[in-house]
Design a protein around this nucleic acid. Structure first.
Lengths: 217, 217
DNA sequence: CTATGTGAACAGCTTCACAGCG
DNA sequence: CGCTGTGAAGCTGTTCACATAG
């Protein structure tokens, strides 16, 4: 309702990429980075990098560049990942279990706090090998969201039930949904939805490869 | 090198969404659809829909709309999915196995033809429960790509090895890569790369939810 | 009267180019 | 000098509005 007024959505996406790249750069004990270096690593122009960062303040040193650690901290703060977000995972199928097993989220500020499914055969059982976190029935989702004060959910359920499950997730107070189901969710504008449809991504590849063209990033 | 001259990349992404929506519409025995209907289902304007389609020809009937089956066929042809693409899966970890188990690709025109990994503990074993397709060593990848004439690969390997594996995949003649590793690949411009970084997607959510804003799609 | 296809107007994002700071 | 921050220019993509077809 307040901040991100006038900030291009593409710029926000790039912010995540800057953060990721800076974290890699820090591994190499680099303390300072210029917009040019950062841009080259990600195939953006230096002006693009500076413009994106300038939307949120001025934290570069003319003649020097940006302090890597400071910029990381500022980007985390901007993106809201200077704290850990607890996330609900809805759907304990193949994809859901893979997401659960993927440890990479933790250090980026996200942690799966609970797993839900409707399948009675799954409820109560451990959600994945090596995980004692049990799958809970989806009816408990609203209580869990409230008790744990959770605002984000990952939806990894079959397309035919995705819309109705999404609605109950929203009713439970969830404010942002990462949707893996290959359908367009219709939800109130107070909820942010990010869609990941793997078939759609593959189609972008086949289009480009068919046409003999090759853009990037 | 030829066709997709002057066609906005966002338009191509929407083409996939139109196709997905049309396939859902066909289930409901709808034979004809207007740009307005299609747009409403996906939260685009009707003008946007018409403009996107018009890049590729004129296949609507003034006063009537678009024939659902015909438009599906045309979109598949444009996107290159009027045939099945065999795809190589590189990386048989959690994510790789989940992708393998996910049956949804088949009817969208993609089929995983072989699975590769470097881990000797995995090579030779079935790639996933219920799959007899064995994991092969990555050294065989080039031969397989040539023998099976495969042009697309899905990269589901750890970040530290992603760049070098990507390079060998490209050397094997692969023209398009769906990259799940959270790094920016540097490859020749003849190769199309589509990146899927789940942490990046989650960060878009946390940014929006923090700011109290909620765009969509 | 309904709905497409499209030039023209508009909006939004990116790149340029330079003033100013360290 | 090197590099940032930023107005101004340029470009790309979206929306408007209407001529045209059924």
């Amino acid at each position: 309702m307040s901040k991100s007024e006038g900030i291009p959505a593409p710029a926000v996406r790039r912010l995540s990429l800057y953060l990721r790249q800076l974290e890699a750069l820090r591994e190499t004990n680099l303390h300072t980075v210029s917009s040019k270096q950062l841009g080259q690593a990600l195939r953006f122009t230096d002006a693009q990098v500076r413009k994106d960062l300038a939307y949120f303040g001025q934290f570069g040193q003319p003649g020097i560049g940006y302090d890597v650690n400071e910029l990381i901290a500022r980007l985390r703060s901007i993106l809201g990942t200077d704290r850990t977000w607890r996330v609900l995972l809805v759907g304990a199928g193949n994809l859901g279990r893979a997401l659960l097993a993927y440890r990479g989220f933790g250090k980026r500020g996200f942690e799966i706090a609970a797993v839900f499914d409707t399948d009675p055969a799954k409820v109560g059982k451990p959600s994945a090998p090596d995980f004692d976190m049990p799958v809970r029935h989806i009816d408990e989702l609203a209580d869990a969201a409230r008790d744990l004060q959770i605002r984000l959910a990952v939806l990894a359920v079959p397309a035919p039930v995705a819309q109705s499950i999404a609605e109950s997730v929203v009713a439970a107070g969830i404010r942002g949904i990462l949707n893996f189901a290959p359908i367009a969710l219709h939800l109130p504008p107070t909820v942010t939805v990010v869609n990941v449809d793997l078939a759609v991504q593959l189609e972008q590849l086949s289009f480009n490869v068919s046409a003999g063209i090759a853009p990037s990033e």
